[in-house]
Design a protein around this nucleic acid. Sequence first.
DNA 1: ACCCAAGTTGACGTTAACGTAATCCGATAC
DNA 2: GTATCGGATTACGTTAACGTCAACTTGGGT
Lengths: 132, 132
Amino acid sequence: MEDKEMLTIREMCEAFDVTPRTLRFYEAKELLFPLREGQKRLFTRRDRGRLKLILRGKRFGFSLEEMRQLLDLYDRGDAQEEQLKRTYEVARDRLAQMERQRDELNEAIEELRGQLQWGADMIASFRRPAAE
Amino acid sequence: MEDKEMLTIREMCEAFDVTPRTLRFYEAKELLFPLREGQKRLFTRRDRGRLKLILRGKRFGFSLEEMRQLLDLYDRGDAQEEQLKRTYEVARDRLAQMERQRDELNEAIEELRGQLQWGADMIASFRRPAAE
DNA sequence: ACCCAAGTTGACGTTAACGTAATCCGATAC
DNA sequence: GTATCGGATTACGTTAACGTCAACTTGGGT
């Protein structure tokens, strides 16, 4: 027994800084599978592992659905080469997607920066177009 | 009479590549104020000017509500120094916000890229945590 | 016995910016 | 007259990821 084997919902929340609602929501979405002691949920080491990956995925911009698919894919026992490659590709695609997003953002930034350079012009561009 | 003075909803849609729903929606949100010829909307030059700014704002990531405020602010006749400065500030804030967003995105990208560098490790990180 | 904290389920609310019918109206084309 | 446009209005649907009650139950402490 290194840590506690099982964590209550509250302990889990503190450990990962999420709300109970979130954990129940993730369970409903089949991202976590806590055991039950009577009514109460008990989160296993496996749940902790999954949650850690889920949160990491979120930082990367994966949706919960994408994470569920990835987790499911590699949870059915022996992940084979073929499937490992797919995960890898999903991650690569996501990276490319994020880079495109960043580039678009950069363009918008440059465009806006350009407007600001002109100062008064920027302001003028927000005035009503001429007179009537 | 340079162009047409007034445009129907359909002409407006083609000119700006938006749907009728969008224009009616913008009117409901008080971003546009087309005149009425009987029942039909007629979009004036002023509406065209506003729509142009609205779409530009969207590219910058402004929400419709933010654009409405900006447009309203400078639509009440004589925009004074004080208010002009405010618009300028809103734009500057927005720029800073976008830059932060871009930076966060870059961090996530670097983090993900790091994972991918390790290839197999990335994959492993998506497998279920060890055995049970 | 009584109460409280912690936990549960269920269900509706939130936000943005429209999409998608369904139904209706008036003017033109034939 | 009638079919057909172009347009109008109304109102519910969509998406993601939870938030926010409400109403219970359960286990433990006193």
